[in-house]
Amino acid sequence: MKSLKWLLNEKKIREVQLKPSAFNYAKPSSVDEVLGLLSEYGDEATILAGGQSLMPTLNMRLSAPALVIDINGLSDLSGISVDGENLRVDGENLRIGALTRHTEIENSPGIAEHAPLISMAMPYIAHPAIRNRGTFGGSIAMADPAAELPACLCALDGEVEVTGKSGARKVAAKDFFKDLYETDMAEGEILTAVEIPKLGAGYRSAFDELARRHGDYAMAGVAAHAKVDGGKISDLRLVFFAVGSTPVTAKKAMNAMEGQSVDDASIAAAQNALEQDLSPFGDLHSSAALKMHYAKELTKRVLTTLSGG
């Protein structure tokens, strides 16, 4: 390998090609410091966590912040580890630090035990190299309509902890995702953690999605969670993603399954109810009608999985 001694040759440095527009960079070491920078710069600042959604927008100059606040040095957000995991069990809740990376969650025995839905969803999130960097909190804060984790968080009745100048507040997942890429977070706030109730006795989860190729954005997907007792389904959650501007909870289909066994008749009833729950819009890869077809097929699959079939 060639010697690297010439590295500080200034002429070389000036020749470097750069994609994003110029920005300043700060790497604070506390949440307070982040909040200070956010209030100083307002919407001129952007937070860099895993960067797997932000960096493409910078590279393509879809966003041009004056300041990038790199939060990867925040021990407050990654320092809530127990047994080497960025995970804490508070009574009935799991607490996941916002900076916890997808790969760590994918490999976490604690998550697999207490929130198996999250473990099931992990392999569907992009690719290994993305999951090594991308963060749980980043995915929630980004609120991409095709993302897996917002739907899972809604299905599990999770809460999002958001911290601002006046302290931390918790928002139920169902109230957090407002619209396309829009959340309940106000300017000057930062997502600090996510809390998920531990898996209740008798509850099961199932997850499925359809994508053109493994790791691509979903064309349609669903997170399912229910109590299963003697083959009968109760307290079902069916939360779809990539079929609307936010995660969509299919209440009519959920009600149709209450107290039912999973068989051809109940699946058909849930699929019919789905017509009232979802009004998908078509995109580049699938028309609205095709998305509805996918959602019905996914419903059949997850109900069958939940019933142990």
């Binding site: 060639k2 690297l4 590295l7 500080l8 070389k12 440095i13 020749e15 470097v16 090609q17 750069l18 994609k19 994003p20 527009s21 110029a22 920005f23 300043n24 960079y25 797997q52 960096m55 493409p56 910078l58 590279n59 393509m60 990038v68 993305i130």
Partner: peptide, 29 residues
Amino acid sequence: ALVEPRTNLVDFLRNQMELTGTHVGCEHG
């Protein structure tokens, strides 16, 4: 080395370090 904050890691490796085995394709992941 000195870098501009906006320098991508891959561009640093290729242009400043002249380690051009790492390729730049789509530039958005």
